[in-house]
């Protein structure tokens, strides 16, 4: 994944350039307001940058030079939001299937049953979305994003709305999916603990710029 973005909104200049690993978990780390979420939104196509070159493997998602701007539905990017954003009028099962159904069969490489067992959500299938706990919702959201067989999974502070016990509960699942499924993860967080437990590579952002990047140990240790 190659990302290069320049975007000015008001006083805030976002000017980043980095490449993410083709597998494993790459963490995007930095304090609130560093511009991490903007990067993820731009990569997913939910926000239009002024200048950018974004490549995922060989696919160009956005290029100012080539005048390419793929709409979000064509980017094949699984996005897990801070708030789970489950569709309240659909059952858990229909939520999980939403993206899966829209993926052509020959592009599906992630099995429904494997996702259910990895995330331990089989017993939730018939439940009403409103009756789920925060941790359960986030697991369904991760499953929903995985089931569209994405080329990459973007996770924007997925544990933020959970208490610390729930966070610890969810971390192993995230570690597990990066290993069981061949999907690289870009994981946004402001918590060094989470990153220590999860990430293979870290990109540190501050005030709209990349300040460090490298392996998890070297980067985090040099900073703290």
């Amino acid at each position: 994944m190659q990302i290069k973005i320049k975007d000015q909104t008001g006083d805030f200049l976002l000017d980043v350039e980095f490449s993410g690993a083709e597998d494993g978990i790459t963490a995007l780390y930095g304090p609130s307001g560093a511009g991490k979420s903007s990067v993820v939104q731009i990569v997913a196509g939910l926000r239009r940058p002024q200048l950018a070159e974004i490549y995922l493997k060989d696919t160009c998602l956005f290029s100012s030079a080539k005048k390419i701007n793929l709409p979000p539905e064509k980017r094949r990017i699984g996005y897990v939001f801070q708030d789970a954003r489950l569709f309240p009028h659909l059952s858990v099962e229909a939520n999980l299937n939403y993206g899966c159904k829209l993926t052509p069969e020959n592009e599906r490489f992630i099995e429904f049953d494997t996702v259910l067992s990895t995330l331990d959500i089989a017993k939730l299938l018939k439940r009403n979305v409103a009756s789920l706990s925060g941790g359960e919702k986030q697991r369904i959201a991760i499953g929903r994003a995985l089931l569209m067989s994405p080329s990459i999974l973007l996770m924007d502070e997925p544990l933020n709305s959970l208490d610390s016990a729930r966070k610890q509960e969810l971390l192993p699942y995230i570690k597990e999916i990066s290993q069981s499924f061949k999907v690289p993860i870009l994981y946004v967080s402001h918590s060094p603990e989470e990153i220590r437990q999860l990430a293979d590579k870290v990109i540190v952002m501050d005030a709209g710029r990349v300040t460090h990047s490298g392996s998890c140990e070297s980067t985090l240790d040099s900073k703290f």
């Binding site: 709409p71 979000p72 539905e73 708030d83 954003r85 569709f87 939403y98 829209l102 993926t103 569209m148």
Partner: peptide, 27 residues
């Protein structure tokens, strides 16, 4: 209706018209 839900549907592969009929209109 939370715009975030429509954005989520887009990232899951739904074109705007489908988002309208499967998310916006039912809600």
């Amino acid at each position: 209706i939370d715009l975030g839900l429509e954005a989520a549907a887009r990232t899951l592969g739904a074109k705007p018209l489908r988002v309208f009929f499967t998310i916006t209109l039912p809600l």
